[in-house]
């Protein structure tokens, strides 16, 4: 079975986000970029499926600027077999990404598509669901466990009330939650070898998709500064403060 993994280049999770002085956007000048952490989990799951003998090939895809090839190489170092780069300098929105991915799915015919449930830059949590709608494939979102049994996919999902287990027919779309797995560190010799793995560059035009923005970004504001917390001496004091100061319970 071929597994397709979609990944995104985002601001490194360790970086403190700064807003441009004119509030037009987040300031990305000289900011360290990295693979979205949920996408790392997606790559790890695909590589584990390959190690178990369930997957035969892991193909990793990203949509973004030339520099995003660094994240593709990282995925190749972690164990993906080949990479596809849909190159664009445009700001890619969820629907545009889903459309491009739908074309890649159509071309590659994977048995399973794994994506991060959301990217930590805009936290939209849309692309996986939109891709499922566009391709007409079943979806299992927020997966905390994935298993292929008798040609069907068993997905355990984290939902508000607990865990939900779904059985999907393949091919299917899965989006990863935080607890699905703990990604490995790339082996240093594999990082060297990743350079020799195939990386195919495509354009939105040759896929026949339009990535131009449909959403206008009006203004970016940093979140309000939080007051420092306090330690309370007892449960009674806590309840008193929640009732009378914070007024969150009555």
């Amino acid at each position: 079975m071929k597994v397709l993994v979609a990944i995104k280049r985002v601001i490194d999770y360790n970086v403190k986000i700064r807003v441009k002085s004119d509030h037009s956007d987040v300031d990305l000048t000289n900011v360290k970029m990295a693979m979205n952490p949920f996408c790392e989990i997606a790559v790890e799951e695909a590589v584990r499926l390959k190690e178990k003998g369930v997957a035969t090939e892991v193909v990793v895809v990203t949509i973004g600027p030339k520099a995003a090839q660094e994240q593709l190489r990282t995925a190749l170092a972690l164990g993906a077999d080949r990479a596809i780069h849909v190159e664009t300098d445009l700001r890619v929105e969820s629907l545009g990404a889903a459309r491009a991915l739908a074309k890649i799915v159509e071309e590659q015919q994977p048995g399973l598509v794994i994506l991060g449930k959301q990217a930590i830059d805009t936290d939209n949590n849309q692309t996986g669901q939109m891709l499922a709608a566009l391709t007409g494939l079943p979806q299992g979102t927020f997966a905390s466990e994935v298993a292929v049994e008798d040609g069907r996919l068993r997905v355990t999902r984290e939902i508000d009330g607990g865990l939900e287990t779904l059985e999907l027919t393949l091919p299917a779309i899965v989006t990863t939650d935080l607890r699905l797995n703990e990604p490995r560190y790339a082996k240093l010799p594999d990082i060297m070898k990743a350079k020799k793995k195939p990386l195919e560059v495509r354009t939105p035009a040759d896929l026949g998709v339009e990535l131009a923005s449909r959403i206008k970004l009006l203004k970016v504001e940093p979140p309000a500064e939080r007051q420092a917390g306090i330690k309370v001496g007892s449960v009674d004091e806590l309840i008193d403060k929640l009732k009378n100061e914070a007024k969150v319970i009555s």
């Binding site: 360790n14 990295a34 090839q69 660094e70 190489r73 990282t74 170092a77 560190y185 790339a186 240093l188 990082i191 060297m192 990743a194 350079k195």
Partner: peptide, 21 residues
């Protein structure tokens, strides 16, 4: 030898140092 590969390698070591060591 190859700036991009080296960057990935250093990022990987940095994450290992920060998160594991």
């Amino acid at each position: 030898r190859d700036q991009e590969t080296m960057q990935i390698l250093l990022d990987s070591i940095r994450s290992f140092v920060n998160e594991a060591l």
